[in-house]
Design a protein around this nucleic acid. Sequence first.
DNA 1: GCCAACGTTGGC
DNA 2: GCCAACGTTGGC
Length: 148
Amino acid sequence: MKSEPDVYSIQDLKRDKTAMWEGCRNYQVRNMLRDSMQINDLAFFYHSNAKPSGIVGIMKIVSHAYPDPTQFEKESEYYDEKSSRENPRWYVRDVEFVEEFSDTITLQDMREIPELNEMLVLRKGQRLSITPVSPEEWKSVIGLDHKK
DNA sequence: GCCAACGTTGGC
DNA sequence: GCCAACGTTGGC
């Protein structure tokens, strides 16, 4: 799950303990948030537009999907006039801090190991802010963390 | 700041 | 339903 650290970083989540993953405005991402995730699933926290970009830690999904309140707030940058409380377009999950890696697992780190060749987040032109991770990919990333 | 690679919008 | 124009993401 991507976030720009200037907007919300793993350090922010560590401080807050839990957070609402707000502001996703892409239908594929919405569907994953709403339908694919389960409570107690783990997720990598990814810093995008960062120096360097990469995976910085682990968090846990701790709520069911519920409507993103920011879509109804006129003063919010995430306001969506086409959405309604009766038929909300956008959803959020609550996430809980689990772990901050001692070093960022950078995109370069991940591209160097063949096990992660197929990892969706590494694919060219891939812009979704949430992408699935296979169990094998999860283990490989954890392995990279242990090496650092 | 550039720009490739997408997603979205809206005229037709 | 097509597709051109436009907007956004995000690595570099």
